[in-house]
Write a protein that binds this DNA or RNA. Structure first.
Lengths: 197, 197
DNA sequence: GTCTATACCGCGATAGAC
DNA sequence: GTCTATCGCGGTATAGAC
């Protein structure tokens, strides 16, 4: 079982997901037909179905990839900038979104689809839970060490702070995609003010 | 041109939208087929198409109805409780959502669909803009009269407050639909704390 | 592994009697 | 206005040669 074969397949899958994501972004998960996706990959139907057994699997892979693009870089900063306060962390998260509007829009498409598609709901729900847990883990320690709160107060504070983070994230996604006249800088001001509490 | 005829048609349209909304809620806008919707209304295909010329119109009508269910009662309080502060207003809004989970879920479906469907984007964007304008109008005066801010400061404050309201609304919608272990009361605490600034 | 060609189904929408 | 029956298209997925 040669290892190159696995690498090749992974790379091919990555390319397919990238092409499919472009289609999903433009037409939605249901609106993007397999014909269109196949054309976007440059492959043939048979070839594509050798890598993904169904459209559903392709949808889930696209959603997971977009969701991870939001979270992974933020998790990366755990090691890069362990001393950053909550305000910097939130700002970094939002600027990551601002720099990748495609992933941001795919995030909103995923949330919408998750309402009526259990498999998507599982992916989206697990992702949101992971963001929350990451925040609680990171800033639970921070609240005790840098803020000097006693453990009980810190637990309360961090739970509310995590809720604020999620809410700010979701507000940014929805408003940046849908609100006419959305002001990116004003939103960052709001997020900074909120995180400074 | 008898007036009863118009009333009859309006009532019939309302019934159709209600049945269609139940289908959209369960299967999404694209996943719900006309066959299914027709069965849900109890009518026949021909009858339904006499009231709505296309599925698209039915989708837009459903989305508008769900969106209005969120905003209208809130606007109604403009006259019922003109003295309520921001915190009460936000709480009322969220409890309205909590009491109508179907409309809440349809809201999220609409936002998701709006990303790749311009007609839905227009409806959703106009609605979000209306919520924001309503907040700014209502609490712009409030900030000057009850909070005693000078006009310039009030303008800044109300812009940020409106952003906070939207964000809290959107956070509630996404989290209540998708986050495993979502805590309604904790979210209300967060919203109240935020509005008390 | 990848291709072409196609099966087969369910979709939105319509025709025409009543 | 409402019904039944149906059209034609485009959907996902597969078969079988290479």
């Amino acid at each position: 079982m040669p290892r190159v074969s696995q690498q090749y397949k992974d790379e091919r899958r990555r390319e397919i997901v990238a092409a499919a994501s472009r289609c999903f972004l433009e037409h939605g998960f249901e609106g993007a037909s397999m014909h269109r996706i196949i054309a976007a990959t440059g492959l043939s139907a048979g070839a594509l179905y050798n890598h993904f057994p169904s459209k559903q699997e392709l949808v889930l892979a696209s959603a997971r990839t977009a969701l991870d693009r939001v979270l992974d870089p933020v998790e990366g900063t755990d090691e890069d900038a362990p001393g950053g306060g909550p305000a910097e962390w939130v700002t970094g998260l939002l600027e990551r979104l601002a720099g990748d509007p495609a992933a941001t829009r795919l995030l909103l498409i995923t949330w919408g689809g998750a309402v009526s598609e259990p498999a998507l709901a599982a992916v989206a729900g697990e992702h949101l839970g992971r963001v929350r847990d990451r925040v609680e883990e990171r800033y639970g320690r921070w609240a005790v060490e840098d803020l000097g709160l006693d453990p009980e107060r810190a637990r309360e504070w961090v739970a509310m702070f995590a809720q604020a983070i999620l809410s700010v994230l979701q507000g940014y996604v929805v408003q940046s995609c849908l609100l006419p006249g959305f002001d990116h800088d004003a939103y960052l001001d709001y997020a900074r003010t909120l995180a400074a509490q």
